[in-house]
Design a protein around this nucleic acid. Structure first.
Length: 106
DNA sequence: AGATTGACTGCAT
DNA sequence: CATGCAGCCAATC
């Protein structure tokens, strides 16, 4: 049989990692990609985009390496997302960026 | 099969 | 700290 399944398997691994990110912590796409291995940051983004809402993935805890949130068209709106993250104990800069260096999940 | 796009990253300005 | 440009890699059209 072909190993085409590997691709889906990595996606499942991404979902697992994301769902394991505790409140007050954030992770970057590239970090997850490196954690899973064989994936790129963009694939992680795609994985979350295609992720079924039934999984209720805390994708709002996943940010890019710059500590910036995803564009408006993604979640309920980054402003709303920022508020939610702040409620989870995550701190931001005045510019609205996550202090990723302080909250980066390992 | 080839071109385009993108929930990215890193460096430069 | 924000914005811009280039590189990379896979999914989508």
């Amino acid at each position: 049989m072909s190993e085409k399944k590997r691709n889906d398997e990595k996606y499942q691994e991404v979902y697992f990692i994301v769902s394991n990110v505790p409140p007050g912590k954030v992770a970057t796409y590239g970090q997850i990609a490196a954690m899973v291995g064989g994936l790129t940051a963009r694939q992680v983004g795609f994985a979350l985009k295609t992720a079924p809402s039934e999984m209720k993935l805390p994708a709002h805890r996943i940010v890019n390496a710059a500590g910036k949130l995803a564009p408006e068209y993604v979640f309920f709106g980054k402003e709303n997302q920022r508020k939610r993250l702040g409620k989870e104990g995550i701190t931001f800069t005045d510019a609205g960026n996550i202090r990723i260096k302080e909250h980066l999940w390992k």
